[in-house]
Simulated scan of single mutants.
Amino acid sequence: MFPVLILVLFLWANRAQAGVGLEEIPATATDGIVTLFYPTQAEDQPLRRGRFVLNLAERAGPIRGNGRLIVISHGSGGGPWVHVNLARALVEAGFVVAMPQHHADNFMDESNPGPDSWTLRPAEVSRAIDAVGRDTRFASLLMLDKVGIYGMSAGGHTALSMAGGRWSPAGFKQHCEASLEEDFQSCVGLITRLTGSMFDGIKKWAAMLVIRHRFSDATPREHHDPRVAAVVAGVPTAADFDMTSLAHPAMPVALITAGQDHWLIPRFHSDLVMQACKSCVLLAHLPAAGHGALLSPLPPGLTGLVGDMLNDPPGFDRSQMAEVDQKIARFFEQHLLQK
Rank of each mutant, 00 (worst) to 15 (best):
H223Y: 11
H248G: 00
S216H: 13
D271G: 06
L337D: 09
L36N: 04
S270H: 04
W205V: 06
S279R: 08
V53L: 10
N66V: 08
V4E: 15
F241D: 03
A230Y: 01
H103E: 13
L7N: 11
R49I: 15
A60K: 03
L190M: 13
A139Q: 12
F107V: 12
A128I: 02
F268H: 13
I328K: 05
D31Y: 09
M143Y: 12
F52A: 09
R318A: 15
R51N: 14
G315E: 10
A104W: 12
P220H: 06
L160W: 01
D130T: 10
L209Y: 07
F37T: 00
R48M: 12
G201K: 02
A254D: 03
V210G: 09
A258H: 00
D105E: 08
T28L: 03
K173D: 00
M321F: 12
Q275E: 14
P287Y: 10
R227F: 07
S319Y: 10
G32V: 05
E58M: 07
L295R: 05
M99S: 08
E23R: 14
S296G: 03
P266L: 03
D135V: 10
T136H: 13
D130W: 00
P115V: 05
G50C: 12
Q275D: 13
A230Q: 03
F172E: 01
R166C: 01
G165T: 01
A104I: 11
G65E: 04
A229Q: 04
G189Y: 06
L11C: 14
I25A: 05
Q45D: 11
L160V: 04
P249T: 06
V84T: 13
A89Q: 10
R121H: 10
N14W: 09
R64A: 15
L120V: 07
A258Q: 05
R49Q: 15
A170L: 02
N112E: 14
A322I: 13
E124F: 00
K204E: 11
A329L: 03
I6G: 11
L264Q: 10
P100W: 04
G65I: 08
L305R: 11
L120G: 09
K203T: 12
E177A: 09
I211G: 05
D116Y: 09
G79V: 02
H291V: 08
L90N: 04
M198F: 12
M208G: 06
R212N: 11
Q17L: 13
P252S: 07
A206W: 06
A254H: 05
F172G: 05
M309N: 11
P226T: 04
L264N: 11
I211H: 03
R121C: 08
V232W: 02
